[in-house]
Design a protein around this nucleic acid. Structure first.
Lengths: 204, 204
DNA sequence: CGCAGAAACGCACGGTCGTGCTTTTATGGG
DNA sequence: CCCATAAAAGCACGACCGTGCGTTTCTGCG
């Protein structure tokens, strides 16, 4: 009777759980059995929803992408464009990659997936991942360009370089907080971001 | 009759091959069977050299650490301390993490290992990895401190922050060159490093 | 050369994985 | 309430994993 069928419902639940586990063990590290156990159902019952492990990985990646956009980018559209919006995004991003996001107990799933597939030969999962990352870099650059338009940033700013720099900062943050368990990771990343903004502002 | 026994010899060969494979598939991704095949020997014959897979991982990590020091840090001691030495290190480091180093066809093994163990509970391998990384960060900070002493960098420079920033740059480089296969990764990283140095120099 | 010890091998074990097949159970529109 | 259909379960398969044991081959000193 529900507007959403039983199948869709468990599928959604499975994706949510799979995403959480992926953040810990990666997309390859997911096992159908462990996932089924966590959901209290049988391996084959779960397996039927996705018809292969690769399809599961693709679905999880897509799910994660939509969640990232919804939590980090979309809310930023309510913030005035330019530097405020960029700062807002970085702040949300830190939350997504760190411990704040209970949906990702193991940190940013993209960071994990990136290293799993970086040396893999081309394949559907790798391709989707690369596309997502490049689109996100473009989006970031676009936000920076908005800052230039607003007069917050220098006219000659290399917006792609800035996007690249910010991404590197986030990778460093993930490394420090996840592997080294460095409590100063957050403040260090924010400091580095401030320095980046300083260099970006018009010379007064 | 040689000064080095047969066992030591194949062990060295095995470590070299294991390191190469690790850079592709990670420390966990190594399989004794595949490694044995690559070396043209039997699984059990190889296995006897290391008495467990965990021991193999530890040995590979130690091997990689000594090789990294030998290729990146030790040669830098011949360069005059301060900014020249720091620049030299970054240059060598880029070679190590990129495609230049034929011993690491899959990029920096530490980057790969970091992701594998970042959410693992504490264990011997993880502990060793963290120790290595923290020691390297300390070493980097020490090099930066040398630059302060030489008058190349500002007196009030936060040397730990600089080390952190450089590490983040390298992670970004690895991401761009390995996953995105971005040809501009090298120049972008060098540009970001230059910007970092600019901020570090005394205000003229 | 001879022989003790090192090195490598062959083989098998228990376990886990992804994936199909058949069967059972639950769902929900008419 | 019925019953077609969807959803979940049960079960088995082949493949691959790390690891141990007994045996065979090689190495290199006396």
């Amino acid at each position: 009777m529900g507007v959403v069928s039983k199948g869709e419902q468990t599928r959604e639940l499975a994706l949510r759980e799979a995403l959480a586990q992926s953040s810990n063990v990666g997309l390859q590290g997911i096992t159908i059995g462990a996932l089924a156990d966590s959901l209290g159902m049988s391996k084959s019952g779960l397996f039927a929803h996705f018809r292969s492990k690769e399809q599961l990985q693709l679905d999880v990646l897509d799910f994660a992408g939509r969640m990232f956009v919804a939590r980090v980018f979309t809310p930023a559209l309510d913030v005035s464009s330019g530097e405020p919006r960029l700062t807002f995004i970085v702040d949300r991003w830190l939350g997504w990659a760190g411990f704040a996001d209970y949906a990702l107990p193991g940190g940013c799933v993209f960071v994990t997936a990136a290293r799993e597939f970086d040396d893999e030969p081309d394949g559907p999962v790798r391709d989707l991942l690369v596309t997502q990352q490049q689109e996100w870099l473009d989006t970031l650059a676009q936000v920076v360009r908005g800052g230039v338009r607003e007069g917050h940033f220098r006219e000659d700013a290399d917006v792609d370089q800035v996007a690249y720099d910010i991404l590197a900062l986030m990778l460093g943050y993930h490394f420090a907080v996840r592997l080294l368990r460095d409590e100063r990771a957050d403040s260090r990343t924010r400091r580095a971001f401030e320095r980046l903004l300083d260099d970006l502002r018009p010379t007064s």
